[in-house]
Structure formats: structure tokens, C-alpha cells
Write a protein that binds this DNA or RNA. Sequence first.
DNA 1: GAGCACTGC
Length: 858
Amino acid sequence: MSSSPTRKRPRSSGDQTDGPTTSSVARLRAASRQTYLRSREAQQLARLGQELQDERALFGEEQLSAREKEDLRRKEERYRLAQARVTLGTEVERNESERYKLPDIDTPLGEERPKTWEDEIARKRYESRPAPGDEMARTDQTEWEALQIKKGKAALEAARGNQLELNTLVGRDGKPLPDVSKLLAASRRSEDGARVHREAEERRRRNMINDRRSLPMFKHREALVDAIKKHQVLVVQSETGSGKTTQIPQYLVEEGFGRIVCTQPRRVAAMSVAARVADEMNVKLGSEVGYSIRFEDCTSDKTVIKYVTDGMLLREFLSQPDLKDYDVIIIDEAHERSMSTDIVMGLVKDIARFRGDDVRVVISSATLNTKKFSNYFDDAPVYTVPGRRFDVDILYTKAPEADYVDACCVTVLQIHAKEPKGDILVFLTGQEEIEAAEEMLKERTRGSGSKIGELIIAPIYATLPSEMQAKIFEPTPEGARKVVLATNIAETSVTIPGIVYVIDPGFCKQNSYNPKTGMESLLVVPVSRAGAKQRSGRAGRTQPGKCFRLYTKWSFLNEMDEDTVPELLRTNLCQVVLLLLSLGIDNLIDFDFLDAPPAEALLRSLEQLYALGALNEEGKLTKVGRRMAELPLDPMMAKALLASEEYGCSEEVIIICAMLSVNNAIFYRPKDKKVIADAARAVFSRGGGGDHMTLLNCFVQWRDYGYSHQWCRENFVQGRTMKRARDIRDQLDGLLDRVEIKRSSVGTGSKVPILKSFTSGFFYNACRLQKNGNYRTMKNPHTIQLHPSSCLARSEIRPRWLIYHELVFTSKEYMRQVFDIEGRWLFEVAPHFYGEEDVEDTSKRKMPKVVGKSGGRS
DNA sequence: GAGCACTGC
């Protein structure tokens, strides 16, 4: 239709600054998708039934392996249950008494309540945590992380093209094999086993040594070590698969360098790389080689190579501003430009000057744009090591695509029909699109099952429960093809084996922060050229691949940004500013950032910190500020926690802070069980107090049930997320002494002190009900909506005053995580911020005036 | 009356 090469899309990056303008095409698309999704829900059950029939018809019982049979049986059971549920359907409320309930655990006073199997599991899990430093310390990680490590190892091997190693991690039946260490333990039971194991172990070691020697990095060993000896700061540029992360630290140790720290942007990477290096060096993980991540320090006095998350290293600056414990600091994956990496680089640049020849710095990046890093570090030399990856054919469309979800499905089907064997990875922006694409693909492959091979559809996004995420790692059966529908989680965080084709529509959801309004926006924007390259690279990990870009080459060259805007330039800086101040960096405007954030964002952060009492009039850190900086929380939450001491409810407040820290991923809401899931959730909201008390009730109930996984399933709560909240709660609990907060609890039924504590931290986020039913913020008057996920969005009564946890612009300007307060609390907790006249109950006096005026307002 | 990319301490 149009000859112009612009692509139709819901919102382009240009719209961001123009405010919430939506093109009519996008509106229509959104509307039709809504309708589609609604009708889809009704079809869901019928489809499951159909699926079962198909499966029975396609593969008779005799062709199935034991595992597939088991799967089928489960599916049938699920179908039976789902059908039974539908007949109950909307009568859930009334039939409450007939539904399955957890056994009553109330017991007479003074009696210990009987141990249920959940308790037993919780206890075992707890007790089985190995001490730090244990071999292959698989400590208190979630299944997801355990899986990730396996995957990380497999990916590492796959990147080296070593099929043998891969097979030792994933068996032929697709089940991940147990750890080497577990195999070892098992085989030790017999003499024979011990011999078999020894031989296998020797073979494995020989292979590993050969592997190390065959890495591209190996040829550069001497030159690289020399360069590091010669130059204080060295930038190493190399593609993934060259072995830089695992090899450089080993080379340095072999050459007699002292203690080495290497940062990683992700926890799992730090753990899996450390495990790999310990294995290669034939030492116990946690001894000479270790890792340190939040909740888990797996290092010892002997540790010479330590892998840490960049956020962790940032925290280390607090206790050791010159990092004198380390002789070499390696900043890996610098090209990702995570917020912590950027700050760490700024601080490392500083200590490099301060410490002089006593420290070595290596910046490691995968992009070609290493010039920037080099310039930043006073023209440090760049050492380039070629990577080892396979060619990827890049294909563009001739004309822009109007509906990229549809275009993705068409491309998938084309690949499936015409291209040789190999799995497909599709990048979409979010859960909604992934679900829509999944449906579309299922619809279109229905009935063609026998003509072309089976198409296995596997979605993956961060909030998908871990059991379902595991599907993407299952090997594709012979004759079938797997298509993975992913968010940008698959760009960096997750590596999926066997991908040969990548489909890239060129969009992703990106968060950006507006310091003026304090609003975050989560909008669909075009990816950068660097992002597109990253995506296409996912096709060439194990063999040559193809990448289908659903946009024109012209768009790629002319419309896309070179690089993704660094995170530091599009986030709320309060926490960063507080950290830098507590490191004694007072003049933030002059701090040497790789890319300096807008001065406005810095000023707004300083203003907020001042309002919270973290700074005094001179902009110097106060005692309150120093205590706040100790807490791994957003300053507002940190303030709420400090205030909780006064209100005698620190126990409750740390729970809520922990629950707020895990991102909106607590309540799971399957499409086909919305009603039940919502009902389960509503129970936690009884007793009022908004979303904050809902979160507290949820956690407390989970705890009362022995942190049971079964309880989570019953209540549509994500166990993985709760586990994380518990870890954060425990960490905060451990920090209470350090920031001198007494443990205190208000017990049940008393919510006012808790809400007042949060008001002390979040008074800036107060808003008031307008006559037209909307809410308007107190500062920077602005009309905002209650997010539909809030428990208050459903209630009949609209509270006069609300405080929100965060403001996010998606389709509208929404406040998320909200609780109701009394206006006078604002004056009570923040008299420096609100006048008495701001918060007095003006309903009687001013109402007529407001009514008269409200017609012409936004 | 209607919705949540991804990390990290």
C-alpha cells in the first residue's frame, strides 16, 4: 500500500516524547486482538480435547515412550479436571464448601501442629542446603536456576561444538542427566562403578583439556597476557564462544597474577561460569574458584578467581572503596551496558588512577564498538580475538509488514514446510503477543499434522512458571520441529540449544523513565541495530543459520538506532545516587559516567532523597541516608523500613518490601481459570489495606502453611517468586541489626502502623480522588488510573486518598500496588512536604466548586 | 472495567 519504508507498529520510539498518541491502525489491531483473545478463552477447553484426540490418532499408544505416555496421561487428567471445573464454573463462590480444601491445621493450644508432608519437604530443603564451599554447591536455588546452570553448561559446550560434552548433560531421552558429582556419588557404591567412573572422568578431563586448547582465545594466550602486563587497562573485544570469560582469568592465574574478580550481569552466568572454571582447573567450586551473588557467597580465603554479579561488586565498594582485595578486575559483557556495569566502570576508572600500577583492569565486550570503552579509559589499547561462530544468512522483507505477529506465523510455517531441519526462535514483545502467536500457529497447523512434520510450540517469558519454561530445553524429536516464541529473555538470559532459524520482527518492550513526572513507561519500540545483531547471532551457535528480519534493509540502516539506550539513561536514579553519595562522591554532575544521565534525572533524585531526609540542605548524606544506603531496596522502601521501627512493625514491613521487590509476578492467572484465580487472590485482600496488605497476607499464609509448594498451586501463587521473596525477606531481616532497627510486630488485625510506615516512605506518591472518579497526584497534578490488577480497582468504594508504589504508562497512566490512607497521615509523616491545608478534608466545603468545574477538565 | 520487556543488590 505505501511506498514509504516506515513500518506500521503500535508505537514508535518517536511517539514516546509526543505522549500517548496511538495510530488508528494500532488501535484497530489492539481492539481486534482483544476480541480474539476473549473468544479464544472459550475455545481453550475444546482445543485441549481436540489435541488429545489428535495425539491419540497420530501416535498410537505403542509408539510412545514411557515418558510420552506419562505426558499423555497427565494431559488427559488435566482435561478431565478442567471439564469438571467448567461445570462448577461461576458457582465457585457458592460451592466453596464442596471444593477441595487443604487439611485444617488448627490444633489445640500448646500442641505442636502435626507435620504435614509440605512441612517435611520444606524442612528437608532447608536442611539439605550444602554449606558454602561444598563441591558443586547447589545451594538454595530454585529449580529454574538449577536448570539454567545445566543449560549454561550445555550452551557453553554447544558453543564449542563439542557434542560429546553436551550429551553428558542432556540424555537422549531429553531428560537432563544428574550432575557429574551425583553420578560420582552413585557410582562409588560399587568397586566396578568406581573404575567405570574413573575412566569416564579421565576421558572427560582429556576432552576438556583439548577443548581449552582449541578455543580461539588459546592462540592469543601469550600476547594477551603480555598486553595485560604492559597496560593497566585493556579492552578485549571478542564474540561469544571465544572463551574469554572462562580462559582469561585462568591464564592470568597461571602467569602468577594475584586475586582476580570478574563481573557478570546475571546470577546464573556467574554461577555456571565459576562451576565450569573450577572444573577445568580441577578444584572444588568455592575454593580457588568461586562466585559471589546475592543470597549466596561461594568463596573462601583461598579464592583467587571470583565471579560476581556486577550489582554485587557495586555493593562491595561500600565496604572496600578501593577494592584492594583484587589485583585484577575484569568487567565482562560490558557491551550490555547494564546499570551496574556502567557504574562499576565509572568507579573502577577512578580506582585505577588512584591505585596506579597495583591493579589491572580488563574490559571485555562483544561489540565492534569498543572505541567508546577505549576512549573512556584514556585510550586504552583494544585487543581483538576472533570469535567462533557460524555464518548466519540475513534476510529482509521487501516491504514493511503491517501485522508482524501474523507475519511471524506465516514465516514460521514457510520455514517449517521448506527449510531443512532445525529449530526456530521468534522474538516477540510480550506475553500477550506470544499467546496470540501460539494460538495462530496451532490453528494453522491443525489438520496438516501428517503432511508435514509436527510443529512443537514452546513459549518462554520471564513470568511463565518454571515447569512450563522447561519445555524449550527438551530436545526436538526426530521429524518434528520446535518453534520457540520468546521475549527478549532469549536475547541474553536464556540460550536455547538447536536454534537454526531466527525470526526478528524488530520490536521489543522497553522501560523508560520520565524524571519530570516520575512515570515509567513500558512501550513497544524498535530494537537497535546492536539488538538485531544479537538476535540474529542466536541462529549460528551450533551450525550455519538463517535470520528472517521482518523489516526492510532500508529500515535497518536508516530507521534503527545504532545501540540500545543504556539503562542508566532511562531509569529512576534514586538508588544509584544514594549509593554514589554514600561512597563519598558528592559532585554527581561531574562524575565521569561513560554516558552521563540527564542532569534533570540526577536533580530529581537528589530532590527526592532530600524529601526523604537522606540528604541535608547542603546535599550531604545524613545518618538516615547512610542507613538507607545499606539496604538493597529502593530509597522509598528503605525509608518505609526505617520508619517501621517507630511504628513497631518492622517484621511486617520487611515482608511487604520483599514482596514488592519481586516484580508483579506473584499471582499467576491462567487464562482458563481466571475466575478461580481471582477468587483465590481476593481472599488475601480481605480486611482492607490495599495491595500492600494483600501481599503481606499472602506471604504470611504461605509461611503458616510451611512454605508449601502445594499451597502455592492451590492459591494460584507462583512458588518460584515466593521463594525469592522469602530470600529477600531473610536478607532484610539479617540487615536489620546493621541499620539498627529493632524487630517488632503489630500482630494481626492492626494495619494502620504498617500503612503509616509506607506513607513515610511514599508520601511523594500520594493522590486524591476527584469528583469525576479519577485520581490526581498531589505533586505535579496529573490524572492517573488505578491499575486493573490492584485489589482496590474492583472495590465499590473509592478511597479518598491513595498512595501508589509505582506509576507506569502502558496503555494508560496506571498506578500499580496501591493502598488507601487518611489524608491527615500525610501531614503527620511529612510535615515538611505537605501543609495542613493540602490534606484537610475539603469534601464538604469545596465539593460544589469542584463539581461545577469538573466538566471541562481532562 | 481491564493488564505486567529484562536484569541486579
